[in-house]
Simulated scan of single mutants.
Amino acid sequence: MTTKRIDPPRGAGERESLRSYLDFHRATLAMKTDGLSDEELRRQSMPPSTLSLLGLVRHMAEVERTWFRRVINGEDIPLVWSSKGNYQEAYDATGATRAEAFGAWQEEVVHARRIEQAAESLDVTGYQPRWGEDVSLRLVMLHLIHEYARHNGHADLLREGIDGTVGA
């Protein structure tokens, strides 16, 4: 599987720019996992850390679900991998598969895109209980860009530790 990644436009408006950068970072995470087996995706290549590429994909499914479905859309749904609301459980990829993790992640990305596109503006708000305040769709999109960018840096190091692949 080879992931295609499109560079964000350089002269777009705010919403298109946010959407494009978010999709760019989503594609980057997928690129970091291209061609790896389930075993390689589960490999914890930076001991003593237990972080793995598959754990990152699972975590980002939770992030997408939380910020778009739970916060912006107000859906009362549990996390994907924790009935107790423990975000750390997603990182445990023991026994997880590419199909399971990517299936959940891609499903959440589809929901996120639908919610973002249906919103009348970036000023639409949802309640973030952890912060105890309303947040705008604009902030959510910026937060996800930040979250992906940070974790894509982790993915770079993890991938290099697995097979030496660097860049992108």
Rank of each mutant, 00 (worst) to 15 (best):
2 T>K: 14
3 T>C: 00
4 K>Q: 15
5 R>Q: 14
8 P>E: 01
13 G>T: 07
17 S>D: 12
18 L>Q: 05
21 Y>I: 06
23 D>M: 13
23 D>E: 15
28 T>A: 11
31 M>I: 12
31 M>T: 14
31 M>N: 11
33 T>Q: 05
40 E>I: 10
44 Q>A: 13
51 L>F: 14
52 S>Q: 08
53 L>F: 07
53 L>R: 06
54 L>G: 03
54 L>C: 03
59 H>S: 01
63 V>G: 01
65 R>C: 02
66 T>A: 11
68 F>E: 00
70 R>I: 10
74 G>I: 09
79 L>C: 09
84 K>G: 12
85 G>A: 01
85 G>C: 04
86 N>S: 10
86 N>G: 09
87 Y>N: 12
90 A>Q: 02
97 T>H: 07
98 R>W: 12
100 E>Q: 11
105 W>P: 03
108 E>P: 03
109 V>W: 09
111 H>R: 14
111 H>G: 09
115 I>E: 01
116 E>A: 15
119 A>E: 04
122 L>I: 04
125 T>C: 07
130 R>T: 13
131 W>L: 14
135 V>C: 01
139 L>T: 11
141 M>N: 03
143 H>I: 01
145 I>V: 06
152 N>P: 00
152 N>A: 00
159 R>Q: 05
161 G>E: 06
163 D>V: 02
164 G>P: 02
167 G>R: 12
